[in-house]
Amino acid sequence: MYSTKYIKPNSTSEALEAIKSMGEGKFLAGGMTLIPTLKQRLASPDGLVDISGCDLDSISDEVDAIKIGAMTKHASVGESGLVKKAIPALAKLADGIGDRQVRNRGTLGGSVANNDPSACYPSAVLALKAIVHTNTRSIEADEFFTGMFETLLEENEIIEAISFSKPAKANYVKFPNPASRYAMVGVFVAQFNDGVRVAVTGAGEGGVFRHAEMEAALSSNYNADALSALEISSEGLISDLHASPEYRANLIKEMTKRAVV
């Protein structure tokens, strides 16, 4: 990697000051994407502002939602009693990300801000009607993700926490890429009183997306059989060495069926 400055402030406001003092600074959360990028010399920021000291890693019960600090590690979400009780599917998702080492470094906020098309967390954000709280505003999940690796976040805006609505029922099932074990298709299904939300990650050319037809079918009948007659379109799905759009379309339906239990 190219040599760069490293600062570890103690609060979000200090972090913002630090990044403003740099030409092209980068916030460093868990570093699971940024550090490999730097090591391969694919990025050369003027400095890194490590926000792991900014006290952003608490998990709290907000009656209708679980609020999780942005710097909470996947392992902490996976083993949180609060999360396991209120939204077990979210704990399961966190527990299935990467390997033990990744889960003990990678963070919720880092994953969501990066919006990697094959990351697991964005599907939970979208399916669980989450609110993304930043240092300046609160953004609804449906607005937040704007495309592959793209979000509504502006320059120098930090995610501080994310509130996930408690569903009546939810589940996350992924089909991992055989090589990387990132989600080749991951489906988060959440049943609320006002309907079912189905979010698909790993498959869309524009990143995570909600699947309207499956949501409609499951809202009227929350049963895997309700999906049998559906044709899943392969349009707009990712094509790569490991899966064609048609195969991904098949997996979307299959993983959704498996998620509805």
């Binding site: 055989p178 090589a179 990387s180 990132y182 060495l241 490991h242």
Partner: peptide
């Protein structure tokens, strides 16, 4: 797997299983 330009597409564990 090399593509038609001779680039090794499976040059990391992200793609080589």
């Amino acid at each position: 797997h090399y593509d038609e330009n001779g680039q090794l597409l499976t040059a990391s564990y992200m793609d080589y299983c």
